[in-house]
Design a protein around this nucleic acid. Structure first.
Lengths: 204, 204, 204, 204
DNA sequence: GATGAATGAGTGTTCATTCAT
DNA sequence: TATGAATGAACACTCATTCAT
C-alpha cells in the first residue's frame, strides 16, 4: 500500500520542521520510517520531491481552510446571527496555526523562506497576505451590516492580526508544540480578542 | 592582524543568515574569505565557535542598545521634553532591526531557534521579552507623568509592538535587506505609530 | 508475444553500442522499452544474458553471411562469369559492416574486447581472422583460374582489407551511422577497390 | 609532493584503458593508489578532471612527437641522406603506438569516442587525420626529390598507413600490451614496409 | 507477462577536522 | 599565520536484483 509513502512524508515533515530541509538527511528519515535508504527512492524521485509534495499538500489544505472561512463569512453576511465570529476564528486557530500538519509546514517555511524563492512566496501568502486580506474583508462586512462603525478596514486588520501573529511566533512556532504552549497562546489570544472587540464595539 | 578573523566572522554571518548555520560549509566560508580551509582553524576552534562568537557579539550589541534606551528613558522621566520618543524608536529601528549586523543575526536566530536551546532563549529574549518589557516600562512612565491615561501597560506594549514585529518579519527578515524594503517597513511603521499615539492621546 | 523481449534486445543493443555494456543500466533500457525494471527479469536471467544473446545472434548472422560468401565464391570457381566480385563485396559491406544490427554489435565489441576475453575472441575472429582468411581464399582462387598472377595471397588480402578496415573504423564505427557517413565510406571504398584491382590486373 | 597526483593519473589511465572511463570507480583508483577515496578530491576536482588531464597530456605528447617528425622530415628535404625514414617510422611506432602512456590513452579514446564528442575529435585527429596528413607529406617530398615517381600522395598514404593501423588495432590495442604482441606487430609492420617500399621504388 | 515494493552494495562527492610544516 | 595533504564519516543517489502478487 501507500503506507510507506505516507510515513515518509510525515516523518520528513517532522524532521524538516525541526531542523530545516537541508539539515535533515535521507538517512535520518529512513531510520525513523524503518526502511533502507534506497527504498525511499521508490516513492520519491529525490529528497526535494518530498519537500515539494509537503508544500503542495499544505497549500491545498490552507486553501480549503480559507475557502471554508470565506463561505462562513458570506453566510454571516446574509444572516448575521447564524455563525458567530468565534467559529471563524477557531477555524483559523485550531485547524491552521495549531493544527499539527500546518504548524509544522509553517515552521519549515519559516526556515526555507530565507533561501528559497518558492517558499518565500508561500510563506508571505499564507502568513501575511491571505490572513490580512481575509480579516480586512471581515471588518468591511461588519461595517456594512453596521455592527462596527466605519473605518480603515486594512488598518483594523493589522491591529487585529499583528498580536495573533506575534503570539503565534512566540508560542506556536518555536520549541515543541505542547498543550501548555497551545494554552498560553489561546490565553493570550482570548485576552487580545476580548479587549479588541470591546474597543471597536464600545460606541455601539 | 585580526583582519582575517574579522573577515571570517562577517562572511560567516552573511552566509549563516541566508542559509542557516548547518547549511553553510567551512568551504563556503573560506572560498569567500579567500583562505584555505585549514587556515580557519587557526582562528576558531571549530565551526560552532564561529556561531558562538557571533551570538556573543550580538548579545553585547543588543545589550548596549537596550542600556542606551533605558538611560534615555530615565532622562525622559526627569525632564520630559529633552528627549522625544522619536529618538527612542529610532534607536530600536535603525540600530537594531535594520542594522546590518543585528538584522543578520536575527535572521540566523530565526532558523536556529527551532532546533537549538541556546538560540531559542536569545531569540525569545531579544525579540519578545526585552522589547515588550521596555515598551511596558515606557508606557508606565508616560502614565506616571500623566502624558497618557492609566491602563494596562503590558497590554499597551503588545498593541504597540505587535505590528512592529509583524512588519519586521514581513519586510526586514525575509529576502535581501534592500533599501526599498527598509522604506516599506518604515512607511508601515510610521503609519502605525501615528495612529497608535493619536488613539492613546486623543482624550488628553 | 515475444515482442517485449525483442524490444529489450534492440534497445539494449542501441544503448550498449553507444555507451558500452557496463555504462548502460537496466533502468535506461526499461525506460526506453516502457516497462518496469522488474519486468526485464521475466525475459532475461540478468543483464549479462542480454549481452550474451546479442553476441549469439551476431555470430549466427555473421556466420550465415560468411557461408553465403563462401558458396558464392565456390560458384564463382565453377562458372567465373555468373557472380561478379561486386556481389561478394556488397554482401560484406551492405549486410555486415553497414547493416544496422551488425554495425552496432561491432561497436559494442570494440569496447568490450578491451576487458572481456569472450568479446575479444569474437572481435578478432570477425574483424580480422575471418575477413582476411576469406579474402586470401578469394585471391588464391583468382590465381587458380588465372585471373591474376600468382603471388602471396595472404599479403594481398592484407593490402585489400586494411584500407577497408581503416575506412570502416573512421566512418562506420564512430558517431551516429548516418547516410552521409555511409556515403563517405562507400566513396573511399570504391576509390580503393578501383585502384586496387587496376593494379593487380594491369599486367593481364 | 605531487607524487600522489602522479600516481592517481597513472593508475587511472591503466584502469580507464582497460575498462573505459565510466566503468572505473573512484574506489578502484584509490584502492590501487593506496589512498582514501576522499583524498582524491584534494588533487582533482572530480572524476572527469582526471580524464581531462590525461587527454591534455596525451595531446601535448602527441603534438611534440609530431613536431619532431615534421622537423626530421624537413631536415630530410635538405639533406636526404642524414635521416633515414627508419628513424621517422620508429618515432611513430616506438614513441607513440607502442609507448606505454600513448598506447593506453589510445585504448581509452577507442572506447570514449563512441559517446563523447571531445574524445571523438581527438581520436579522429590522432589516429587518422594527422598520421595520414604526415605520410602524405612524406610521399610528396619523396616525389619532389625524385626518390619515387609522381603519384597521388594521399592515396599512397592510405596504402601505407592502412595496414599499420590494422596491425596496431589487432596487436597493440587489444588485450595486454606484452612484448610478444609488440614483436608480432613489429614483424607484420616490417614485412609490410619492406614490400611497400619495394613496390614504390622498383621502377627506379 | 508484468509490476509494486524493497534492498545491499556501490556511485561520485562533500563534510569538518587534523597535523606536520 | 597559513597551507598542503590527508582522512573517516556522511551525503544524495543509482545499481542490479528479488520476490510476492
Amino acid at each position: 500500500m501507500q503506507d510507506t509513502k505516507e510515513n515518509i512524508l510525515m516523518v520528513s515533515l517532522e524532521l524538516f520542521s525541526q531542523r530545516g530541509f537541508s539539515a535533515v538527511s535521507i538517512r535520518d528519515i529512513c531510520k525513523e520510517v524503518n526502511i533502507k535508504e534506497s527504498s525511499i527512492y521508490y516513492h520519491f524521485q529525490n529528497k526535494r520531491a518530498i519537500l515539494e509534495e509537503l508544500l503542495q499538500r499544505f497549500q491545498s489544505t490552507a486553501n480549503s481552510m480559507m475557502n471554508q472561512l470565506d463561505s462562513a463569512l458570506n453566510d454571516m453576511g446574509c444572516s448575521p446571527d447564524t455563525l458567530s465570529h468565534d467559529m471563524i476564528e477557531n477555524c483559523f486557530f485550531d485547524r491552521y496555526l495549531m493544527d499539527d500538519f500546518c504548524n509544522k509546514v509553517i515552521r519549515l517555511l519559516l526556515i526555507e523562506q530565507l533561501d528559497n524563492k518558492e517558499a518565500q512566496e508561500i510563506y508571505d501568502l499564507w502568513l501575511f497576505a491571505k490572513p490580512l486580506a481575509f480579516q480586512s474583508k471581515v471588518f468591511s462586512m461588519l461595517m456594512e451590516i453596521k455592527m462596527i462603525k466605519p473605518a480603515d478596514s486594512g488598518y483594523m486588520a493589522e491591529k487585529y492580526y499583528a498580536p495573533i501573529f506575534l503570539f503565534a511566533q512566540r508560542w506556536l512556532f518555536c520549541g515543541p508544540l505542547t498543550d501548555a504552549r497551545k494554552r498560553s497562546f489561546r490565553a493570550a489570544i482570548d485576552r487580545h480578542l476580548h479587549k479588541f472587540f470591546e474597543e471597536i464595539m464600545e460606541e455601539y
